[in-house]
Design a protein around this nucleic acid. Structure first.
Lengths: 145, 145
DNA sequence: GATGAAACCTAACCTTT
DNA sequence: AAAGGTTAGGTTTCATC
């Protein structure tokens, strides 16, 4: 993982279908040298895969929300994980510093479906309450999701 | 967006570098028909781009934070977008319902780098203050990011 | 990094509905 | 018209040196 590997990954991030020669021109390497590096990055697990970014509206997952989770007493990350794993609408979740115990990102077809999913989270005995912020307009999306 | 388009996207999701002929064999179309459909999906904005999934640990972006943004007066989503677009550490951002004007997800090497990035956001005249929650442990990751 | 054979992409043209 | 198939060329990939 040197400077050139990072350059190659940056290029692939912008366009995973770019040709080896094009990438090589950017990072100052021949096409075959670029291919050897990419093959190695994939073999080593640095690159996990090549994927496509799709308009969420088309996917039927237009409604997104950031949800803060507040629990009763002390809950271990393992317990939280078990509770959240069963809700497919949860796209991302993590324990956090600050007031809340965890922050959860959810995606669903519409607000109704989102509320249903939220109800599943709230149903857990350890969950005291939640605070949701529904996304109105997406400003930046640099993840593949 | 018929059944075949969805099939093509599913294939691309698994491997964005797959050849047109390979995809065609899966969905029952010739290579050129597949290319025409993919070109159309990109032109129509259904496919936003092709990207790479990288092991976050290797990338040195281990530290993540959810940041609530509070602005002075009224700020348009367009203005917000302009402010946030210049900070590469921002992975996702959107305007939201509730108290905050926007929620921003950031990723950086460590807490120091995160603070630097946060400072760049705060530097904007329209930003009044921010409230950050640093991720302690990731519980669920269903996005490609 | 260069080479050459094989595979692939791409655009033009033709056929089908 | 709109969508798919076929073909031919130029280009890219990929193993080998």
């Amino acid at each position: 993982m040197d400077r050139i590997d990072h350059g190659i990954i940056d290029r692939l991030r912008l366009n995973a279908r770019a040709g080896y020669a094009d990438i090589g021109a950017e990072v100052g390497l021949s096409a075959s040298a670029v291919k050897r590096r990419i093959d190695r990055l994939v073999a080593d697990g640095v690159i996990r895969g090549f994927t496509v970014q799709v308009d969420p509206a088309v996917e039927g997952l237009a409604t997104e929300a950031y949800v803060e989770l507040f629990c009763r007493g002390t809950v271990s990350p393992t317990d939280l994980k078990r509770i959240l794993a069963g809700v497919p609408e949860i796209v991302e979740a993590g324990t956090v510093t600050g007031e809340a115990d965890a922050i959860v990102i959810m995606r669903a077809r519409d607000v109704i479906a989102l509320e249903d999913a939220l109800e599943k989270v709230r149903a857990a005995a350890t969950v005291d309450h939640t605070r949701s912020a529904i996304v109105l307009s997406k400003l930046i999306t640099r993840t593949a999701g």
